[in-house]
Structure formats: C-alpha cells, structure tokens
Simulated scan of single mutants.
Amino acid sequence: MAKHTGDKPYMCGECGYRTAYRSVLTRHMRAHTGGKPYKCDQCDFSAAQKGNFAEHVAKHNGDKPYMCGECGYRTVYRSALTVHMMTHTGVKPYKCDQCGYSAAQKGNFAEHMSKHTGDKPYICGECGYRTAYRSDLSKHKARHTGDKPYMCDKCGYRTAYRGSLYKHMRTHTGEKPYKCDQCDYSAAQKGHLEQHIMAKHTGDKLYMCWECGFRTAQRTTLSLHLRTHTGEKPYKCDQCDYSAVQKCNLDEHMAKHTGEKPYKCEQCDYSAVQKCHLDEHMAKHTREKRYECDHCDFSAIEKKDLDSHIVKHHIYKPYML
C-alpha cells in the first residue's frame, strides 16, 4: 500500500533517510555500520548488497548476464548495459544551461561543468595533482602504483583501467557502437566519433591553448600540445633515463628492452608494440579507410597516404606560382 499512499514508515536514526520498505532501510543502514554480509569464497571481496556481490562473482566465472538486444553486446554489469544502450537511443538527459552540451551520464555532465567553473575537485593524495576529471585522476594514480589488474583473455593485454580493457576488446570483436547521426560513419571509441563529427560536420575546435592560441577538436590533443610549452615528459623508463611526452612513445621505447609485442593480428603472424600500429595493419585486411581528409572527400587506409594527399593538394606552396 505504501506505493499508493506515499507512506515511508521506515526511518534511519542516523541521517533521517526514509523509505516505504524495511528491506531497503536494512541495506541503507549498512552505509553507516559498514556491514558487508556477502563474502566471496574465491577472494577477499565482500559487499553490502547482493546485486554488487553477484556482479563481482561474475568476474570469476566469466558470466555476462546483461545483453543488449540491439547488437548483442554483453556485460557483467547492469549499469554498464544501461550506459551502452544510450549509444543506440541517443538519450542525453543531462543538459548544460551555459552551452549546447548534453550528456548521457551524470558523471560526464559534472566533468563538463567544470570547464565553466574551473573546479578541479579530484586530487591525488600522493603528489597533490588536481584535475576536473575523475577518469584523469584514476589514470594518474596508476603512475604511482603501476598496477594493471585488467587482462584480455584473448591476447594477454593488461591495463590499469577497466574502461581501457572494454575498448581494447573491440579490437577482437570489431564492435563499433558509436554511430554518427549525420552519415554512416561508426567508431569503436567515443572519442573517435567526436573527432569525426567536429572535423566533418561542425568544424568546431573547442579546446584552445592559452599560450599560443592553438585550437583543436580534441582535449587529448590539447594536453599533448601544452607539453610543447612546459617541456613535461611524464612517462619515464625505469630501465634507463629515457622519458616521453606520450605513453605510446614510452611503450615503443620499452620494446627495445623487453622485445614484447603484445598486440597480435588474428589473421596473420603480425604483432606490434603499439595498438595504433596493429589498427593500421588490420586496415590492410579489412580495407577500411580510417584516415579522412578535413578538406575534401579523400580517405586512406594508411596515415602516410593521407599526409601525402594533404601535402600534394591542400598545402599552399608559393614557389609553385
């Protein structure tokens, strides 16, 4: 009856939280008591809620019970499926009142708002590094710990981030869930779709360098550009004095020490130090023209061919007059 009457007879004595259900209050109280009655018999994980425990156990047995009815994508987490479904529906309920930005996730919206406010709420307890983005803080912390708990069961690739593993798996499955609503382009990563839309449809370059006025459509490109001013080389080799501006450069350097090439082609015996090199190689099998010219309709399988095209057709050469 509480659903119909709106009554919430069960109240938390600690914070005043009210609910119509005694079981919900019981779960809520664990936030105060720290109780975690659901314990994993395969590791030291424990959970306050049965749903969280079930999702954890799925990591051990490999179950992915949540499946997308549109494309067959499967996941261990119900929340991950909810987020994935938005790539099909295009629903973006979180809207910025200061610009035209909208987001499918509350976390992404909060991070966007920091562009307007200048807030950097996420801080590293080790060195004081601050950022507007929780994802950036997670990546930063991995530099201190070096942990890479997430591993690909197809090729052995390891990463510090669950999200990076999801993205990596698309190199095996071929999934491209991010689809352009203005043409037939699709991408494996959200950032690639955003780059495509800005380059091909809007021409927007939202990110600007305050030192020299350089503008770009990508936040990551701006971050890399800023290091040309600061001289920062955060990626350091632990076997020699080499340091790099970009992680991919460090990975490439490390191969000189280890000889490891973790990115392997499933269609031939090719292997690569860097994922981007494998992506370029795979295009030779698929004939996908991943590199598109910003000035005309030309596209190419390899980046060097696009570079040659731009030099030949779009760069002003006064000596030719």
Rank of each mutant, 00 (worst) to 15 (best):
Q105S: 14
A20R: 15
T159L: 04
C265I: 13
H56Q: 10
H56R: 07
T171M: 14
T82S: 06
Y161A: 11
E288W: 06
G125Y: 14
P262T: 10
H309R: 08
L224C: 10
V57R: 15
A110M: 14
T286Y: 07
G100A: 12
R134E: 00
V273N: 06
R22D: 08
C71F: 01
A255M: 06
Y157A: 02
H4P: 03
E111G: 13
C268S: 04
I310R: 12
M151C: 01
F109A: 09
E126G: 05
R30S: 13
T258G: 02
R22N: 15
K289H: 04
K3Y: 08
K256Y: 02
M282N: 02
K106C: 11
K233W: 10
G146Y: 05
M86D: 07
I197H: 00
P177W: 02
K50S: 13
T258M: 06
L81C: 05
H144Q: 03
C248S: 15
H60K: 14
H295T: 12
D136Y: 01
A199L: 08
N108A: 15
G128E: 09
M320Y: 12
A80E: 12
Y122T: 05
I301H: 10
Y291D: 01
L250R: 00
H277N: 14
S23K: 09
L226M: 14
T19S: 03
A20C: 09
Y122M: 12
N249F: 10
A132R: 02
C237H: 07
C276M: 00
G69Q: 12
H192V: 00
T173M: 04
A255F: 03
G51L: 14
D147N: 14
H60S: 14
A80S: 11
A142V: 08
K304W: 06
T230P: 03
Y161S: 11
